Amino acid sequence: MTAPAEQEVRLTSLSPGAGCACKLPLAKLEGLFAALGPGLEPASGDLLVGAAEGDDAAVLRLDDERALILTTDFFTPIVDDPYDWGRIAATNALSDVYAMGGRPLMAVNLAAWPGDDLPVETLGEVMRGGADAASAGGCLVVGGHTISDPVPKYGMAVVGMARPDRLFAIDRAAAGCHLVLTKAIGTGVVSTAVKRGAADPETVAAAVASMTTLNAGASEAALAAGVRAATDVTGFGLLGHLHRMTRAAGIAAEIRAESVPLLPGALDLAAAGFVPGGTKANTTYLSGFVAIADGLPPELAVLLHDAQTSGGLLLVVPDDPDALIADLRGRGLPAALVGRTTEGEPGHVTVR
Rank of each mutant, 00 (worst) to 15 (best):
Q308G: 04
G273W: 13
A271Q: 11
T284F: 01
P334D: 06
D319P: 01
L328D: 00
A326K: 03
D327F: 00
G295K: 10
P318W: 06
I325T: 05
H305Y: 15
A270T: 11
G332Q: 02
K280G: 11
L286Q: 08
D319V: 12
A301K: 09
V317E: 08
L303N: 11
G295I: 11
A326M: 00
P297D: 13
D320P: 07
L303F: 09
L315V: 05
G288A: 12
V316Q: 08
D322M: 03
S310Y: 06
L303H: 09
L303E: 11
A271N: 00
T284D: 15
G295P: 10
L328M: 05
H305F: 14
K280H: 11
G311K: 06
D322S: 15
I325M: 08
R331W: 00
F274Y: 15
S310V: 10
I325P: 03
A336Q: 09
L333H: 02
S310N: 02
A326H: 02
D327T: 15
S287K: 14
L333P: 02
V338Y: 04
Q308S: 09
P334W: 02
T283L: 12
L304T: 12
K280D: 13
I292C: 02
V338D: 03
E299T: 01
L314P: 05
L333K: 01
A291W: 00
G330M: 07
G312E: 04
G288M: 09
K280M: 14
L300N: 01
P298C: 00
Y285I: 01
L313N: 04
T283F: 00
G311E: 06
H305P: 11
S310L: 06
V317W: 04
F289G: 02
V302H: 14
T283K: 08
S310D: 04
L333S: 04
P321F: 05
I292V: 15
S287N: 13
P297Y: 12
L337D: 10
L296I: 14
G295H: 10
Q308R: 08
P334Y: 03
K280N: 04
A335C: 07
A291N: 12
P276C: 13
A336H: 03
L314Y: 09
V302A: 15
P334S: 07
D319A: 15
L324H: 08
G295E: 10
P276H: 01
K280C: 07
A323Y: 03
T309A: 13
S287F: 12
G295Y: 09
A307P: 04
F289K: 11
H305D: 15
D294N: 13
N282T: 10
H305W: 09
V290F: 12
V302R: 13
A335R: 02
L300R: 15
G278A: 13
G273P: 09
L269Q: 06
N282P: 12
A307I: 04
I325R: 06
